[in-house]
Amino acid sequence: MHTKENNTCCCSFDFCKETTEWLMSRTWVRPKIAVVCGTGLGLLADDVADSQCFPYEDIPHFPISTVPGHVGRLVFGHVNDKACVFMQGRCHLFEGYSLCKVTFPVRVFKLMGVETIVVTNASGGLCEDFKVGDIMIIKDHINLPGFAGQHPLCGPNDERFGIRFPCMSDAYSKVLRKMAREVGHELDYSNFMREGVYCMVSGPNFETISEARMLHVLGSDSVGMSTVPEVTVAKHCGLQVLGLSLITNKVSLDYSREERVQHEENQAMAEMRAELLRKLLQNVIARYDEIDFNIMETLNSH
């Protein structure tokens, strides 16, 4: 058992290496794909073959999930014969963790040999065309906390992870997004699959109507309290990223509406639609070997 300290900065290369070595000495799986399961989406890891599970509290330096709907464990195993690791639950800035701590697992995945990370979340729909239950492929994001200096890459840069000033204009892989669209079409998901811009706010409160209107004007299609820090660090580390957002509620832009957003209702909606998202993810992973990373890098640079 290891002592946990909420705001301890533990994202140094040595700490990441220590955690990596601890995990690799206890699992035979060498994952190439990592999946971060958002609120109510822990079911995405239920079909992992030959699974090995590690509670976060047992892993050196790992942050612990405290939010309902986040189990808080790593699940190693295989999906369609592809070596994967699933985070059943993530940590958030609003839980009191530094963004260094929130993104610590991503750096560990990098050192373990992960090439691609799939980030999922439950979010509120801002786009008028979106409906509750839609699956949105994230094509870009707005890092609102980052504008205020809450950024996971603040502080000294370790070149062993990545360069000082990473480009974020291609954070979400065009090739992986295209594959997700194709798989969605094959699964007959076209009626509820969207593509859009995700905005992160720090939370933990849901947005006021004026705040939601502002985010909509800025170009946000959905809003949530996670994902962007992990994506930023993944891009910094040279990982390929696919982002999938489940629209669990419509964000109110109208003062005449009386509905109130509830975390429990969002969690329940996520759990209801998790099976559809799981099928999408399984099929994307099944086709992973079809990806030519050299072509991917060329496409992502344009």
Rank of each mutant, 00 (worst) to 15 (best):
C237F: 01
R260V: 15
L277W: 07
Q267M: 15
Q240S: 12
V251C: 13
S245C: 03
E258H: 06
T248R: 05
G243A: 04
I247M: 13
S252C: 11
H263S: 01
E264V: 10
H236N: 13
L244D: 03
V241W: 06
Q240P: 00
C237D: 02
G238A: 04
R278Q: 14
L277Q: 15
A274M: 10
L277C: 15
E271H: 05
E264S: 13
L246A: 06
R273E: 15
A268I: 04
H263A: 06
E275V: 13
H236K: 08
K235P: 01
L277D: 08
V241D: 02
A274R: 05
R278E: 07
H236C: 06
H236L: 05
R273V: 13
H263D: 02
E265M: 07
L277I: 14
L277Y: 08
N266W: 00
E265V: 11
V261Q: 06
L246I: 11
G243P: 03
A274C: 10
M272F: 14
R257V: 03
H236G: 05
E271R: 12
V251W: 11
D254A: 05
E259R: 14
E258D: 07
S245K: 04
M269I: 15
E271G: 00
Q262S: 11
S245D: 01
V261W: 00
L239Q: 14
A270Y: 03
N266R: 05
V251Y: 09
K250R: 15
Q262K: 14
R260L: 14
Q267F: 08
A268Q: 09
E265Q: 12
E271P: 00
V241I: 13
H236M: 06
V261E: 02
L242D: 01
N249P: 09
R260T: 15
K250G: 05
C237K: 00
E259I: 11
Y255L: 08
S252R: 13
V261S: 04
L246N: 07
A268T: 09
R273S: 04
R273I: 11
I247R: 14
N249L: 09
S256N: 05
S256F: 00
E258T: 10
G243D: 04
L246P: 07
S245Y: 03
L239G: 11
M272C: 11
E264L: 08
N266P: 01
Y255D: 07
R257C: 06
T248W: 03
E271K: 12
Q267P: 00
E264P: 03
L239R: 14
L239E: 13
Q240T: 07
Q262P: 01
N266H: 01
N266G: 11
Q240L: 03
E275A: 13
L277H: 12
E259V: 13
K235G: 00
V251S: 10
E271S: 08
C237Y: 01
V241H: 02
V261R: 02
G238D: 09
A274V: 08
C237N: 02
K250L: 14
R257M: 06
V241Q: 01
A274F: 04
Y255M: 08
N249F: 07
R278N: 13
L244R: 05
L244S: 01
L246T: 12
L277V: 15
Q240E: 11
G243K: 06
